[in-house]
Every structure is written in C-alpha cells, then in structure tokens.
Design a protein around this nucleic acid. Sequence first.
DNA 1: TGTATACTAGTTGCATGCAAGATGTCGACA
DNA 2: TGTCGACATCTTGCATGCAACTAGTATACA
Lengths: 258, 258
Amino acid sequence: MQDVDKVTTQTGNSLQQHAYEFIQRQIADGSLAAGTLISEQTLARELGISRTPVREAIGRLQTEGLLESLPKRGTLVRRLDRNDLIELYEMREAMESFAASRAAGRIEAAEVEHLHSICDDMSRMVDELRDSDNTVLDSEQMRRHLALDMALHMTIIRAAGNSRIFKVVSDSRLLTRVLWAPRQEHDLTVLTEAHDHHTRIVGHIKAHEAEAAGKLMAEHIRASLQRALDHADRDRQRRTMSADYLPPLNSHGDTTVD
Amino acid sequence: MQDVDKVTTQTGNSLQQHAYEFIQRQIADGSLAAGTLISEQTLARELGISRTPVREAIGRLQTEGLLESLPKRGTLVRRLDRNDLIELYEMREAMESFAASRAAGRIEAAEVEHLHSICDDMSRMVDELRDSDNTVLDSEQMRRHLALDMALHMTIIRAAGNSRIFKVVSDSRLLTRVLWAPRQEHDLTVLTEAHDHHTRIVGHIKAHEAEAAGKLMAEHIRASLQRALDHADRDRQRRTMSADYLPPLNSHGDTTVD
DNA sequence: TGTATACTAGTTGCATGCAAGATGTCGACA
DNA sequence: TGTCGACATCTTGCATGCAACTAGTATACA
C-alpha cells in the first residue's frame, strides 16, 4: 500500500501547469501576439480541458506580468513599452550588481571555473563571427549567445546565495525575452563589448573585489539597456516611416504609442 | 508614466479580493499561526462564499510567499526561518539602495518636503519616548513608528520612479511584517539610530548626492537586519531556556536546526 | 498482542452550470 | 443619412458537483 514511486512530478502533470506552460510557449513563439485578447474558454477548448485550470494558469501569468486583465472584458497579452523595459533593466541593475558584489565575497573555486569556461565559449563566438562573412549573428547563434549570457549571469547570482534575487531576475529576463517584440541583432562591436565586460566582472569576482564587481555589473547592464532602447527606437522609426504609406490617420491620437 | 501605487489596486469589491484580504488579515493578527494547515472549505464557510474565490485568493497568497502548498494535502501558512529573513533584507538592500541613488537624481521639491515632514514626525516620537517613563515603545507607538518608517522608505522608492521595484519591496516588507513571529521592541537607541540614518539619507537625496544616499541606505537596512537577527536569536534562546526539559548548554551551538 | 484491512472523514483538482456585464449587429425610425 | 434601442453573443465571476487521493481510526484476524 505504500506505493511511493509515483510521488514525483505532480506539478508536472497537473492540468494547470500544462496550461501555464502552453500559454507561455504560445506567447514566446509569437502565436499569441502582444495586445491580443485571450479567452479562457477558447484556450480550454484548444487544450481539451475545462476552464478552471486555464483560469488559474492565467491568474499566475497575470501576477507574473505576462498577461493583463481588463476589468470585465477579458485578459490580454501584455505589451512592454519603453518604460517597462527601463524598469526591468533597472531592477536587474540593482539586483545583479548587488549579487556580483556578494558573489565576490563567497564564490567557490568550482564556480569560478564554471564562469571561466562560459567566458571561453563566448570568446569562441566572437572569433566565430569575426572569421565569418556575416556582420551579425544568425538566429541560431543568437540563441546560443543568449544561453551563454544567461548562464553566466545566473551563475553569478546563484553564487551570491539568495534564492529570491535569483527568482526576481529570472522573472525579469523571462518578461523581456518573451514580451519584447523588437528582437535585436548582435554585431561584432556588441559581442566584444559584452565579452569584455563579462571577463572583467568575472576577474573582479575571482579576485574578491566586491565593489568593483558590482559597479562593473551595473555598468554592463546599463549598456545592455541602452542598446535595447536604441534598437527599439530605430525599430519604431522604421515602422513609423513605413506606416506613412498606409491609411492616413482615420483614428486620432496617431503619435501616441500606448 | 503610470501611477505607482495603483499597481496593487484592482477588483476592489470582488469576492476573491475580499477573501484575499481576509486571509492576509488572519495571518497578520495571528489568528492563523505559521505552520497551521488551512482549508478552502473552512475559509469559504467562514466567509459565507464558495470555494472558488477562496481558492484563487489562496493561489495569489501562495505566489506572494505567504502560503505554501503541500502537494495534495493542503496549504499551510509559511514560516520564515533565519535564512528567509536574510534573503528578504538583502533584496531590500539591493533595491532600496538603488532607489535612493536614483531618487537623489530626480526627486522633486514636494517629495523632499514630504520626507522632511515624516522625519519630523519620527523625531517627535524620539522625544516622546525619551520624556516618558518607558524604555521601549508600546504597541500603539510601534504601529505608528512602523507606519512612518514605511511611509519614508516608500516615498523614496516612489521618487525613484520604478513601479516594479516598488512592488517587490512592498511584498518583501509585507512578508516580514506578517510572517515574522518574534516581534521586536524599539528602545531609545534603536529609535535614535534609525532617525539619524533617515535624516542623513534624506539629506543626501535632497543634495542630489546619489552615491552617498545609496550607500547609507544599504547600511541602514543592514543595521535593521542585524537588529532583527539579534532579536530573533535572543528570542529563540529565551524560549529554549524556558523549555526546562532541555539543558540550555547543549542548544548553544546548533543553530542549524529549525 | 500485533498486524493488515476496511471504512470514514477530510482534502484538493477539475468540470460544469448559471447569472451579470460588455460588445457588436441589425433594424426601426427621424 | 444618422441615431437609438433591442437582441444575440461574447466575456468573466462565482457556485456546485464529483472523483481521486490522504490520513486517521476502528475492526477483523492471526
């Protein structure tokens, strides 16, 4: 009677968890574009389940900031505006610079080794791009680079030993990754600068130079934000110019970008 | 530019909101002690509503960290241990020192005025205690002092203009306020030190000295954490000693056991 | 006496029903 | 042509029913 073997993964096979992951995937891969209204019923039908678990999954995604509930009309996929992006990066700046300082005081040799190996991988990506005919990373390379960047930052935060900071930063990154429409391109300049920052940060952490590590991490994240904003502005300008060919202002409030 | 404090207010008169506030109050005033199991059905009956809104309120409280769900057995009121407290204060240190720096660069005159008036109120509380016969604040004074402290910190964060940081810090403070069992006492030393920190922080912010404001805020919060930990340790030792079936000498070293 | 079994009461997870509110459409009418 | 109003159809918010699971207890049995 003591069958303990299937105790694991009850969140894994719960319908709510399934719905949660389903919706998040749909948003991430663009099936659910920002601004679209979603309906509990529709999602439930798509998943072949009832509204209840879908409703609870929507609730979670709402508190995490991916969805937004309109009073009595429905819930829609949030759209990050410029200010949201600034806020998210500022949070990372606060959290991660603190974490870098803290990590500098308590990191262990094995973790430093891990950081070095990640830096080496990123260095190889720089060479790879320089030796290729392209000026920017292709999408597969972007995926790899993002994964490396994520691994490096998260390793540092984990070394700081604060699980809540880890979660907040994870959520922030998820939000920008999933909801931030203008996907950037990385050229050689961006890549080398990021790599330079990373190696110097890791160096400071290894040398137990807490303050320098924190300061540089803050600077690094501010630089990322600046790039993201520049890219977004260029993207918006491009789209605004191409929109000149389209129907002339039948709806009012043309220049306001929600 | 959205209003920062409007983030939390939504669905004011919904049953779910009602249940949410009810449960939170019960935890805050001790009716639901840490570690007790709660039942959707019971709460629903107490509130005279059905399980559904109660269940959703519990879900929210769960993601906010006040409740914890055991797989299929029920959900219980979380208990914060020493490490939780450290993590929560570290998050505040990271967030609020950043916010103080940021506020120093952009605060407006009216907000500075508000900070000054809060400082004055706290100063009056210092005098009040000094002139009284008591060595510590009574519970009503503690409530007032906590409200003033909260107002000051939150005003600074609001001046920093980042609604997400505001929310994270609010949640952190809610958790410690509601879930941290050993309630502290504030004597004259504590009060004057806090007041000293506050006035100096406000001074730096007013003078647009970003770095000094941030550093001092970090120090201020570290001091608060230290006081909370000391108090908790004393509290635990007291309780251990009062348990006369255990020799107090043995329990000195093992701080790892909860 | 000690152990396995069955039973009871409690819990959550999910499905479903129903009412109230919001939105869009279509037709009547000025 | 333009405006108002009823209606059909969405949506959510909540109540309720039901099955699966767990813990605890009483009971049958060796």
